[in-house]
Amino acid sequence: MNSMTNIKYVSSLVENRFKVIKKEIVSEYQISFEVDKDEVHRLLTLLKLEGWIQLSYLSAIDWINDNEYELVYIVMNWEKPVHVQIRTRISRENPSMDSILPIFPGCKYYEREVHEFFGVKFPGNPEYAKQLILEGWDDIPPLRKDFDPRAYSDAHFAKREYTETFVNLNNEKSKQVKREKRKERIIRVRKGGKK
C-alpha cells in the first residue's frame, strides 16, 4: 500500500462525490481539494468515516484583494498516511462558517484561534468568542492583512532613540591598524616564525 495508491484512492473517493473546484497534489503524502462552502461538512464526515479521524489543523488565509478568507482543514488518516487539505472560500465582510464541532470535537480551540486572529465567526461552537492567546487585545484581529503591526508597536511600545552622530575615538588610532598587525602575526606564526 504505497502512497500513490492512497492518493489515487482519496482523489477518486472525493471527486466522484463532490464538485471539486481545484485539486492539487501538494506532496507525496498530501493532497488538497478546494470545495464549495456548504459541501465542507458532508465532505469531512465522509472522510472521517473513511478513516481520516484526526483533524490536524484548521486555519484561515486572508486574500485581501479577493476580499475573501480561505479556511483550510487538514485531516489525517493513520492507516493510509495521507494528509487531506479541504479549502473553502468565505466572504471577508462578517465572515462566518458553521462549526464542525460535532464532526471533530478537536476543532474547539482551532476555531477560537481563527476567530481571535481573523475574526471568523463559528456559530455552533459555544466558546468561539472566548479569548485564547492574546490577553486584553483591543485592536482588530492582528493576523488580518489590513492590520499594521508596526503602527501598533510604535503606538504602544516606546522605542529606543539613537542619536545619529558618529563618535570617533579622539586620540585612539582606529582599531583597523591593530587588526592588520594581528593578521600578520597569525600568518607569521603559521609559517613557523617567532611569535
Binding site: 492574546l134 503591526p149 508596526r150 508597536s153 511600545f157 516606546a158 522605542k159 529606543r160
Partner: peptide, 19 residues
C-alpha cells in the same frame, strides 16, 4: 531587550525593557 531586536515591529513584543 535593548531595542526589540528583530521583533521590533511586532504587535506582541515590547521594544525597550528598561521602560
Amino acid at each position: 531587550t535593548i531595542n526589540g531586536g528583530i521583533y521590533h515591529d511586532s504587535h506582541a513584543v515590547i521594544n525597550q525593557l528598561d521602560q
